[in-house]
Nucleic acid binder design. Structure first.
Lengths: 241, 241
DNA sequence: ACAAACTGCGATCATTGTTCGCAGTTTCTG
DNA sequence: CAGAAACTGCGAACAATGATCGCAGTTTGT
């Protein structure tokens, strides 16, 4: 009944009644196991219930909706993040945090689906935010800029990791849409009406830059562009719609 | 039957048989209208069929799956992008493109859902890519860097616009999860265990920077960080897992 | 002791994307 | 021009899914 509040503000169990046979963390663990093995779509209420040896309806004693289950899963995954000590160099510290984020995302690729539209706020995700803000605490920029930088950082890490996962899957289980997209792109490039695209297409030399370095290079570039106080802050033209 | 290929490589109709009563664009238009009014979730096969005055099963004469319908919708929305002439200043040109992207996303907020996990490749989205590459054609950086920059740009625009949409909805129809998240965040900030978060929370002065300027500032910063050839390219420490 | 408040859960519901097969229509082929 | 081939719209139905309801049993608080 009490579903209006965040699940993190709802007591895990009440005082009356028999002891529950499971708990939120058990559901989350079962969900994570399923998602790790077969993707987020495999996390159905029935599948989770089966994994626990429970009936499907029983899950609703612990969560109000499937979305909440995913919230628990996302937070559980973020609990795997290890926070290194801050070095004081904000750029290095943020990069380290980004690397951890990438690491758990590669370990649980369904995170890309679960956090695609929004990232649920739970203890672990909040802890991540706290650490990120701590890394830039010493910087002499407005708080707002820091929040923006952290938000953009998350978006960039997701985007990069998404690409990485898509390519890594090349080994097996190439999703059908990926084949179809590649075919269409080849078609368009060969058609002649998109010169820049065709040029980029032809220019696909194997750069042999390690993914780690690529990741670091882009994240570093983005963060420098956002937080280094050398920009004028003036976007160039003042007019806009 | 021919569902393996991209829909853009499949002929719209064959030569035999009676003339179709509808076409792909009609489906896309109906879908867009529904999504504009009630969100992407309202775009069910039945709803689209009803809007067209057709039976649900008829839609499958034009598309292979609902996902393809969304692809058509996304491409149709991107067709609304107006491409200004290139000024030659790559940063200004990319910013203009980003603004157009933001504009259509605010006009069709469901795009944030439809492109959350991947952006489908169609004529209009490819045209966007072509123009973006054209804007940086004169830049003396590796092709790879340009592709990365465009990809990151898209991700950042999406993230910023998503935030914007979430806040703009404050007027009415505040999603339930947003209230719940805010409540939890307040709780955490008041708890005392997250000083940096609490500080940021308390520091929510009304900056009164226009959203347009904020958007321009961030996009500019990110692009400068990625494409301006002043970075060393060396991320600082060479070691990583 | 007794009620309140819980627990697990079988049964069931509404919604959804999708498939099948049929009857009718148009086009190609010889 | 006949007949086959390939389409069209679509009613009916299916499988899967998230979620609800109510019941029987259990524990807690007073």
């Amino acid at each position: 009944m009490a579903a209006a509040d965040s699940i993190w503000l709802r007591p895990e169990r009440a005082s009356r009644g028999p002891a529950p046979g499971y708990d939120r963390d058990a559901l989350a663990a079962a969900g994570v196991a399923l998602a790790d093995a077969q993707g987020l779509a495999a996390v159905t209420m029935r599948a989770v219930a089966d994994a626990l040896g429970a009936g499907p309806a029983s899950l609703y004693r612990y969560i109000a909706t499937r979305e909440e289950l995913v919230e628990l899963m996302v937070d559980r995954a973020h609990a795997e993040i290890r926070y290194p000590e801050l070095t004081g160099a904000w750029l290095d510290d943020l990069l380290a945090l980004a690397r951890e984020s990438r690491r758990i995302t590669l370990a649980h690729t369904w995170l890309l689906d679960a956090t695609a539209t929004r990232t649920p706020l739970g203890p672990s995700t909040v802890a991540f935010l706290e650490h990120a803000l701590g890394a830039v605490a010493g910087l002499d920029v407005p708080t707002r800029d820091k929040l923006e930088a952290v938000a953009v950082l998350s978006a960039v890490v997701s985007a990069l990791t998404r690409t990485e996962v898509a390519q890594a899957r090349g080994g097996r289980t190439i999703p059908e849409w990926q084949r179809a997209q590649a075919a269409y792109l080849t078609h368009v490039a060969a058609e002649g009406r998109h010169p820049h695209l065709a040029a980029a297409f032809a220019d696909q030399g194997q750069d042999s830059e390690s993914v780690d370095r690529l990741f670091a290079r882009i994240v570093t570039g983005v963060l420098r562009g956002l937080l280094r106080p050398d920009g004028t802050g003036d976007p160039g033209d003042g007019a806009n719609a």
